[in-house]
Design a protein around this nucleic acid. Structure first.
Length: 1186
RNA sequence: GGGCAGUUAGCUCAGCUGGUAGAGCGCUACAUUUACACUGUAGAUGUCAUAGGUUCGAGUCCUAUACUGCCCACCA
């Protein structure tokens, strides 16, 4: 087959790839190798399906394909398993952005809902995936497509679920209420590693909580100070030492006065700021840790919409963070508390994907515990992650990872040392659903789609598939305005609602407040008492919304509060309680009817935004019901101070049961409860200032019992808590009452009244309270169908499993997993792990592929994902398989444009690798990505570089073309030369001349060096050496010499050297080398040819030295010719007659005279050897020294 | 604050274990030659950031310093 004049990559590349693919040799199982051939496996770092391949991917594909092709030619059973990554946040953020940019949607999550949005993302990702896979082919990557994987396909989902369940069962995954990084814009958590720090200017305020507070503190986030619970100082700080341990109560405008405890902490730098740190456990990682250490309270003042909470105080509730900051700073100024205000620059954590400032807020999320000991192993995940670089996994030196370049080890260790528990739950939808189901969480976990701008969508965008539709009410509660009666201090609720000046003003304020917030309500409810009805009408009447009066929203019927709230009986008018109706209600009755009311409207108007205008007690009842408060707590918040008619209280009602946790002493009791023996729990009324008492519980609440150690009063954790639901509550005035109303057999704790009395009497304080307040009895029922997995307890309300639980009413956690959770499994989830659903914790089960290819031989990645990915692969693999994920890892840098800037869409400097392929050929692109690049260092990419390698490809091509043309010309005289039958490479040549010996020596040298370079991952060097050899030795010299030598032997030799060179170049330039090779040997495939063997005997230093001398001489002559003849139009036709004077090597010159004459177009007349070097040049003589 | 890289020709960068400074691009001159103008031949260009040290010998090893970039922590 004759080659065209120049190489046109576009015509051959696709065909060649197809030929490779059809050959089946991408699949290692098909390679013609002995059974015991060594394995070389490599997992493709899966590109994100967020778009198309960029240059970085091109680089990765080139590196790994070069490596795999080299290994394949070395006779290894080599495989690249290809795949793509669903890239949870990245993809969803990308699609949402596009939807918003399209102008069709303002908030896609809200407007489309979970299923529809997921559908769109799926479609997008499938398109993107298809494109990417095509592009990978285009790059020439020799992957085994039969093993193609996707982090979000069914098999990988199994792996993810299996891993989650195992880690959960081993206690390494836990659900906890802890501070997390929260993107307000993205409405999702982020891991610590996903934060991008930006330097910004900020104001640094120094202030005091109150005039007499002894320690000033400084902050850039004053608004969070509304949630401070401590001030930390350095234990050695003489200024503050005396205050350590004391507690202050300060009133700074929060819902309740702050109790500030002065604590000592080593980490406080006495020289920074005021040397004292205001501790805000709810909104700072470090402060949260202090809270754990010093047992502080936690007050969340910022909510997940980036607005201030009720706890921040009525003045602040609902304000955006920045508004609150301004307001609080003003407050400080007005009260003369602000000491200093200075400009500083600080690092602010922002979200890479969503682009907003990240808030730290406390939330219930899932975490991987990196410090806990792995059951059955003497190490934590953190230890394990270190071990693989030190002693080797489990102390096995063969399970040690080698990293190139080594310096990244240090980075890695530094990162590990700072590693906190890994938050793995995300609130975005695109990703692996957390394999946890909740029985009681039907509405608790529904997605709220309230936006940062305050808009609220009441439609549940995520109706659980096949399950119950979750329900929720969005309630804003307003207290009616003051009537003239009120103003006169009369509490004559039944009377009409005439407004005085104050009432009218309040009404006006309320209308304005509602209007300014743009609040729209679907319904307004009010109590049937006049003043509430009036207020509702005045305030909402014009909006046309229906106003419904409901008697259940009344103030209490002035009932007998029956001893539950002692303070209420004080009648200090603080709580409006009077005793008009002896048979009226108590607070719990109010709660009961309010709950009925709520249940009813929830049934009818689920998802609606409603306003309620009523009185104080129903509001407290709602507070109790929705916020799990006790009545005491509800009563404690002084509603009048907080201008309820302006702000309104905001509640979400969703029928979620309260879950209480309760200590149980005595294992027998615990077991009785666990085993479902019917039981009545009895408790006396509330001890003063004590924790919960039974009067706080209500029917439907869930009680979680923990077994506690009587002596130390601590929970015994190796006994899982059990859960029961409260089915009935009765209050008895005396123990006798209790025992007459219950059958004794129902009661397991005591056999009779006397015994029970005896027990109580032994605890005088308690018994007195029974005497005074009576006793509560509770009946407990089974909390419904909550069978967890084997390793967890049977009574958990949550189910963790690889598949959905059977039975009614289970709802899967709507959260998804951090994308790196699935990426971490990549090296083995791609190989069929888990082998079966029966695989049990700690016992790796192996598929054939897993057995054969894991740990993988090699991995390459950019340093920017070292922590994200490498660390997590080590964690997952080391945990689940007790194996390292890969034996060696090669770190490459990132590509930058010619100005050193990162490539990015926004910078507009993006280069599409496919454009480069089309313009210059894939091989040229590959070479340009490989050469001039050192491991771990960034490299600049510019088009000129590709042009250079395109030229090189063409040079390579034309050498082949020359050989073939020459051979065809010679065929008459040398019939053994054939270009098409394979005989051309039969090695039937002999290195006869100096040039022959030289090129063979050089070839072997190159083989040796390039092989060494490959083995040490010096790809760049290998590529450059081959470039140099092929062009400047083979083409520039030997090809020219071959023209002179011109015999069959020479061409045979030339062909051999050439084809060997093609083999060496094949890993870098697969397409062109394969194409040329097949034009020489049509029935063979270069891809699986054996890598050239070094024949060390053929390496001859003397030969190379001699030839070098010859080259120097020829160069010198040419140089002389040029300078001697000078200027253009020199005489080229006629040959110059030369007399050569030379210091040493005269023999060589004489011997190579003909060649020199040929290459220099000269005629050497004589050669004279001189003793001394003298580089003068005259007309016809060349003097030089060798 | 801790760490890691880099500083070599006009530009982009090699230079692995210390042994007389390299490549590509660009630049200059010549050449239309039968594989290739996507070419060939010849040529110019460097106190290898600075200062010390080790060594027979240092771009390479050691110690400081300067500048540039990156990572981590802090950011009250």
């Amino acid at each position: 087959m004759e080659l065209p004049k120049s190489y046109s990559p576009t015509e051959v590349e696709d065909k060649i790839y197809e030929r490779w693919e059809n050959s089946g040799y991408f699949n290692p199982d098909n390679l013609p190798l002995p059974d015991d051939a060594p394995i070389f496996s490599l997992m493709m770092p899966p590109p994100n399906v967020t778009g198309v391949l960029h240059l970085g991917h091109a680089l990765e594909n080139t590196i790994m394909d070069s490596e795999i092709r080299y290994q394949r030619m070395r006779g290894k059973r080599a495989v690249i398993v290809p795949g793509t990554d669903h890239a949870a946040v990245a993809t969803q953020a990308r699609v949402e952005k596009e939807l918003i940019n399209s102008g069709k949607y303002k908030n896609p999550r809200q407007e489309l809902g979970r299923e529809k949005l997921l559908e769109i993302i799926r479609e997008y990702s499938e398109n993107s995936k298809a494109t990417i896979l095509k592009q990978i082919r285009k790059m020439g990557t020799s992957c085994d497509w039969s093993r193609l994987a996707y982090t979000f396909d069914e098999k990988r989902e199994q792996a993810v679920n299996e891993m989650f369940v195992r880690m959960y069962n081993d206690g390494l995954i836990y659900r906890g209420y802890r501070v997390v990084n929260w993107s307000v814009k993205g409405q999702s958590t982020l891991s610590d590693d996903e934060l991008v720090y930006e330097e910004r200017q900020a104001k640094f305020y120094t202030f005091k909580y109150s005039p007499d507070f002894p320690i000033p503190i400084a902050t850039t986030r004053p608004e969070t100070k509304l949630g401070d619970t401590a001030v930390a100082v350095n234990p050695d700080d003489s200024r503050y030492k005396k205050y350590i341990g004391t507690e202050f109560e300060v009133e700074i405008g929060a819902a309740q006065p702050l109790r500030i405890k002065i604590i000592a902490d080593e980490n406080v730098d006495p020289d920074f700021g005021t040397g004292a740190l205001g501790v805000t456990p709810a909104h700072s990682q470090i402060d949260f840790e202090m809270k754990e250490k010093h047992n502080l309270e936690l007050i969340p003042v910022i909510d997940k919409y980036g607005r201030m909470t009720e706890r921040a105080g009525k003045e602040y509730a609902g304000l955006k963070v920045l508004e609150a900051r301004e307001k609080f700073v003003n407050y400080l100024k007005e009260n003369d508390l602000l000491i200093k205000e200075e400009e500083i620059s600080q690092n602010v954590g922002t979200s890479d994907r969503f682009g907003d400032v990240v808030e730290v807020i406390p939330m219930l999320q899932w975490f991987v515990d990196v410090n806990k000991q792995i059951p059955g192993r003497d190490k934590s995940l953190k230890d394990l992650m270190k071990e693989v670089f030190t002693t080797g996994l489990n102390g096995d030196a063969s399970q040690k990872i080698k990293i190139t370049p080594e310096r990244f080890e240090k980075n890695y260790f530094n990162w590990i040392d700072n590693l906190r528990d890994w938050c793995i739950s995300r609130q975005i939808w695109w990703g692996h659903r957390i394999p946890v189901w909740y029985k009681w969480a039907i509405s608790n976990f529904q997605d709220t789609t309230r936006l940062p701008d305050g808009q609220v969508s009441n439609e549940n965008p995520n109706p659980p598939a096949g399950g119950q539709k979750s329900k929720k009410l969005d309630i804003t509660y307003f207290v009616h305005s003051a009537t003239t009666d009120n103003e006169n201090g009369l509490r004559t609720g039944w009377n009409g609602g005439e407004y005085g000046e104050k009432g009218n003003k309040q009404n006006q304020e309320l209308r304005e407040a509602i209007a300014s917030r743009g609040d729209k309500y679907d319904m307004v409810f009010c109590s049937d008492l006049d003043r509430a009805r009036e207020t509702a009408k005045v305030v909402f009447g014009e909006s046309g919304v229906e106003i419904i009066a409901d008697p259940r929203l009344r103030e209490c019927n002035y009932g007998d509060l029956n001893g539950h709230h002692e303070r209420d009986f004080n009648s200090d008018e603080k709580y409006y309680i009077e005793h008009r109706h002896p048979n009226g209600e108590n607070a719990y009755d109010v709660e009961k009817r309010v709950r009925e009311f709520l249940d009813e409207i929830l049934e009818k108007y689920a998802g609606k935004k409603i306003a309620i205008v009523a009185h104080m007690y129903p509001q407290r009842a709602i507070d109790v019901i929705t916020n799990s408060k006790t009545w005491d707590e509800a009563i404690d918040s002084d509603w009048r101070k907080n201008k309820a008619w302006q702000a309104g209280w905001h509640y979400e009602y969703n029928q979620q049961p309260k879950i209480w946790d309760l200590k149980i002493y005595g294992k027998e009791t615990f077991e009785n409860i666990k085993n479902g023996i019917k039981r009545i729990e009895t408790r006396p009324g509330k001890p003063e200032g004590a924790e919960k008492y039974w009067g706080d519980f209500r029917v439907g609440d869930v009680v979680e019992f923990y077994l506690s150690d009587e002596k130390t009063d601590t929970k015994i954790y190796d006994i899982a808590p059990i859960r029961k639901v409260v089915t009935k509550i009765t209050h008895y005035q005396t123990l006798e009452d209790l025992f007459t109303n219950y059958k004794m057999s129902d009661i397991t704790t005591s056999q009779n009244v006397e015994e029970e009395k005896h027990w109580w009497q032994s605890k005088p304080g308690l018994y007195e309270r029974i005497e005074k307040y009576g006793i509560w009895a509770f009946e407990l029922g089974e909390a419904n169908g909550n069978k967890g997995t084997e390793a967890t307890n049977n009574d958990s309300e949550l189910y963790v499993g690889t598949e959905a639980p059977t039975g009614e009413g289970w709802l899967q956690d709507p959260d998804t997993l951090d994308t790196w959770f699935s990426s971490g499994l990549w090296t083995f989830s791609t190989l069929g792990w888990p082998a079966s659903a029966k695989a049990t914790a700690g016992k790796p089960e192996k598929t054939d592929d897993l057995e054969k290819f894991h740990p993988t031989s090699w991995m390459q990645m950019g340093y920017e994902i070292l922590f994200f990915w490498m660390a997590r692969m080590i964690l997952m693999s080391g945990y689940a398989l007790q194996e390292i994920p890969f034996k060696e890892v090669y770190i490459h840098g990132i590509l930058r444009d010619k100005n050193g800037k990162k490539f990015s869409k926004s910078a507009g400097n993006g280069i599409d690798p496919l454009d480069m392929c089309a313009k210059y050929g894939t091989d040229a692109l590959r070479m340009s990505l490989i050469s001039g690049v050192t491991p771990g260092n960034d490299a600049k990419f510019y088009e000129d570089k590709v042009v250079g390698f395109r030229n090189f490809a063409n040079k390579l091509w034309n050498i082949g073309r020359f050989i073939q043309l020459a051979i065809n010309n010679k065929q008459q005289t040398h019939p053994q030369l054939r270009s098409d039958g394979g005989q051309a490479t039969n090695n039937s040549w002999e290195a006869k001349t100096l040039a022959d010996k030289w090129i063979i020596s050089r070839l072997n040298n190159i083989i040796q060096e390039v092989t060494g370079d490959f083995d040490n991952y010096r790809f760049s060097l290998a590529a450059e050496k081959l470039y140099e050899f092929a062009w400047h030795e083979l083409a520039d010299w030997y090809v020219e010499i071959a023209k002179k030598q011109g015999d069959g032997n020479t061409y045979q030799l030339l062909t051999t050297v050439y084809l060997e060179t093609l083999k060496l170049l094949h890993p870098f330039m697969p397409f062109i080398t394969e194409t040329i090779f097949q034009s020489f040997e049509a029935d063979k495939m270069l891809m699986i040819k054996k890598w050239p063997e070094i024949d060390e005997e053929k390496i001859n230093a003397q030969t190379e030295q001699d030839f070098k001398a010859l080259q120097d001489l020829i160069s010198a002559i040419r140089s002389w010719r040029k300078s001697a003849q000078g200027g253009p139009g020199g005489n080229v036709e006629s040959k110059d007659i030369l007399k050569v004077q030379i210091a040493g090597g005269g023999e060589l010159v004489a011997e190579q005279k003909e060649l020199i004459d040929y290459l220099c177009r000269t005629e050497i007349e004589s050669v004279e050897e001189l003793a001394e070097f003298d580089l003068e040049v005259d007309e016809m003589k060349v003097k030089l020294v060798i």
